[in-house]
């Protein structure tokens, strides 16, 4: 008797499943005629946990987009695989402009050098909306170590232990390249993110470490860490006295930058509407202050330029990694 009832109920469930298909939403996103986009909420997904740079940037942009477009712009965190999980989800979302994301350059230019092909994502699978900002890397040593430049590391005449913030990150590539180009014997000590790497450097468990500006700049200002180099093309306004690696004679230019993406095939007018709204957001004082507070350099450029930057860095990194025989991961 009981089992019959259970079966009836399961049948009901299946019927409800079939009847109810379609019309499901996570953040009540909109739809409908293209001309008057947007008619509903625009969801921005983040391929990282709350609190990281990508998350904070997305939330700042979401707030601005919401004001400009007059719809609400909820942010959803989908952390996993350095953002690849979120990328794959965005890739298969409908290309109607109601699901967009800020993504990292390193996911497309560096991570594929370290992971298997199945886990790598390609920028060609997305439409670019526009550039956002650049987040630079610095190489730093403990103040008590006496190192001031990359050349000092070479003079030390020992194997330099360097901390990095994980496999397939710009920090790993930048430091591996530096030591190879400069011909300094070195050991890579990977950490699970910026905070443990910073702890190890402050505790002098490693000789030097590479991390993003925002993670270490306060300790530089406090005189606990000494920046040896930044890895941007030109000097960074937040650390104007620190020479780039290139200035010091080592051709290592690695930066993290972020840009707005949509699923492939999103209509042109939708993308331009989004980029216009983003540009208006970028122009607000609140957003400019946000960039300063997070040590970000704006690169609010059109999609074609982002495409070019990505293409250039992909081929450059690939060439350098091959030239110097660097192994970032298992790929």
């Amino acid at each position: 008797m009981k089992s019959v009832r259970v079966r009836v109920c399961l049948g009901l469930t299946v019927a409800a499943l079939l009847a109810g298909c379609g019309g499901v939403k996570t953040t009540s996103s909109g739809g409908g005629a293209e001309g008057n986009y947007p008619t509903g909420n625009i969801q921005m997904s983040v391929g990282a946990s709350p609190g990281g740079s990508t998350d904070l940037i997305t939330r700042a942009i979401a707030e601005g987009l919401g004001k400009e477009l007059g719809v609400s712009v909820p942010v959803v965190n989908k952390p996993g695989a350095n953002g690849a999980l979120n990328a794959k989800e965005l890739q298969s979302a409908p290309a109607d402009g109601y699901k967009i994301a800020v993504q990292n350059a390193s996911l497309f230019t560096i991570t594929p050098l370290a992971v298997s092909a199945a886990e790598a994502v390609k920028i060609d699978d997305f439409d670019l909306i526009g550039g956002v900002s650049q987040d630079d890397y610095m190489l730093a040593a403990h103040a008590d170590s006496g190192y001031k430049t990359i050349a000092d590391l070479k003079k030390a005449g020992k194997t330099i232990k360097y901390g990095t913030t994980g496999v397939g990150t710009g920090a790993q590539l930048a430091s591996a390249l530096t030591f190879k180009v400069a011909g300094i014997p070195s050991t890579d000590v990977p950490f699970d993110g910026g905070a443990p790497a910073m702890t190890a450097l402050l505790g002098r468990q490693v000789d030097v470490a590479t991390f993003q500006l925002g993670e270490g700049i306060e300790n530089v200002k406090a005189g606990k860490l000494v920046p040896l180099a930044v890895f941007s093309g030109e000097r960074i306004k937040y650390l104007p006295d620190v020479p780039t690696a290139k200035e010091q004679g080592f051709d290592v230019v690695v930066s993290q930058y972020r840009f707005l993406t949509a699923p492939k095939g999103t209509p042109e007018e939708v993308k331009s509407k989004l980029f216009d709204a983003a540009k208006k957001t970028f122009a607000t004082d609140a957003y400019k202050k946000f960039n300063e507070a997070n040590f970000l350099t704006p690169i609010e450029v059109p999609p074609s330029e982002v495409q070019k930057m990505l293409g250039d860095s992909t081929s450059k990194y690939k060439g350098q990694v091959e030239q110097y025989g660097i192994k970032l991961g298992s790929a």
Partner: peptide, 25 residues
Amino acid sequence: LGIPANATMALMFGALLIQGIPPGP
């Protein structure tokens, strides 16, 4: 030290940054 010890502290770090108060020594 300006080092977030766990996920929640990472968010606090972000919250302080947004408020224009960079956590550090």
